[in-house]
């Protein structure tokens, strides 16, 4: 007995949604994960000695030659990373402010039933990582200050290995790094899992669990992998 009455739909687009922002966050996040893992691999080269480490650093700059100019690959990576951080930050802060707006009246008492520490510290943890990254770039890339009174600025400029050893002979530098790695580990333990969930790769209970596990494994690998060189240097095993 019915006539057609299709619902009157507003024009809606997939890219106007919060989930689209999450795609942005997830894909940029995955870029970071890849980068961080490579970076970690590079750092571990300190255990192979000064020569291996320095030539690896040099290699990074000659990679892709002669198609790319000297340092070209590094610049491409830097551009991708900068674009990613912009995207990641944009998405993060937009969602952050949306979430604040969605509950302007807070609970007097609110407890977490299941949320992991990682998931609850994504935002401030992310800011901490950002601060660290800025400091990190100043330290190792842009200014390269001679923090360790025992090593001269010119020696640092000559050999990345020397720079690294000089820095991590100082206990407080190691402490800063370890703290940052804990922040990164927490962020990644949730972020790695979350990215998979966001991209729709966890549609079964098992898939979901697997993504969780991958998150913890990546976080553990990154924390341990980044923590080993500074600790080895501090305790005189390397350098």
């Amino acid at each position: 007995m019915a006539t057609t009455t299709a619902p009157a739909k507003r024009r809606t687009r997939a890219r106007d949604t919060t989930v689209f922002l999450k795609f942005l966050m997830a894909t940029t996040g995955i870029v970071f994960i890849g980068y961080v893992l490579l970076h970690m691999y590079g750092n571990l080269k300190v255990f192979a000695g000064q020569e291996a480490f320095d030539s690896y650093a040099h290699h990074l700059r000659t990679f892709g030659e002669p198609i790319l100019p000297y340092g070209g690959m590094l610049w491409i990576i830097r551009i991708v990373l900068v674009a990613s951080i912009l995207g990641h930050l944009y998405a993060a802060f937009t969602l952050w402010s949306r979430a604040n707006g969605a509950r302007s009246q807070r609970y007097a008492v609110k407890k977490a039933a299941k949320a992991t520490l990682g998931s609850r510290t994504m935002r401030w943890g992310g800011v901490a990582i950002l601060v660290f990254v800025v400091w990190h770039l100043i330290h190792f890339t842009i200014v390269k200050p001679a923090i360790n009174a025992d090593v001269s600025a010119s020696a640092i400029a000559e050999s990345p290995f020397t720079m690294m050893v000089a820095s991590f002979q100082l206990w407080w530098m190691v402490a800063i790094y370890l703290l940052a790695m804990i922040a990164l580990g927490l962020h990644l333990s949730h972020g790695t899992f979350s990215a998979q969930q966001t991209l729709g790769w966890t549609q079964t209970a098992r898939g979901y669990q697997r993504a969780r596990t991958i998150g913890y494994v990546v976080a553990a690998v990154v924390v341990v992998g980044f923590a080993l060189p500074p600790l080895a240097i501090l305790f005189g095993i390397v350098g």
């Binding site: 969605a102 949320a115 969930q197 991209l199 729709g200 966890t202 549609q203 079964t204 898939g207």
Partner: peptide
């Protein structure tokens, strides 16, 4: 409503225990 950040408090509070993987399906 706010955006989801996959924290999972929702499923833990859901009286019917609706799992997180449905959100993954929505995302996909």
């Amino acid at each position: 409503f706010g955006g989801c950040t996959n924290i999972g408090e929702c499923s833990a509070a859901c009286p019917k225990g609706i799992p997180q993987d449905v959100i993954s399906t929505l995302n996909a």
